[in-house]
């Protein structure tokens, strides 16, 4: 059985528009940089349980936890899938969350 990753972030898609959202202090925010980072499993699991209320209330669908790591003082998603969800399509840098001028660059190039 795979070990539970040390650091995790909780994410989901908003029901009305499908937008990627992240968990921050009991609510959903649009940007990965604002997301809560869970350092231990009980806290992450508690957030996931709390998130299910938002599923019931038709705010989001399919919340889940994913692995992140700390790199040069920054939090980054471990898997390519989550890196792309955080940023937007790597082939259209003008679209998705990466398109917002204030967003720092995401390293998703080949």
């Amino acid at each position: 059985m795979a070990a539970t990753p040390a650091l995790q972030v909780l994410t989901s898609n908003r029901l009305r528009d499908g937008a990627v959202v992240y968990w921050q202090a009991g609510a959903w925010v649009e940007y990965f940089k604002d997301a809560d980072v869970f350092h231990d499993k009980p806290l992450a699991d508690a957030a996931l349980a709390a998130a299910m209320v938002f599923v019931k209330d038709r705010v989001v669908v399919n919340p889940y936890l994913f692995a992140v790591r700390e790199e040069a003082g920054q939090i980054r998603a471990v898997e390519q899938r989550e890196i792309i969800r955080c940023a937007g399509p790597s082939v259209r840098r003008d679209l998705g969350k990466q398109a917002k001028p204030s967003m720092e660059a995401f390293d998703v190039s080949i």
């Binding site: 390519q80 792309i84 399509p89 082939v91 080949i110």
Partner: peptide, 13 residues
């Protein structure tokens, strides 16, 4: 993987 939920890897790049 640039768009698809089922994908394992990017095709377009």
């Amino acid at each position: 993987l640039d768009y698809c939920d089922l994908a394992n890897a990017r095709s377009i790049p």
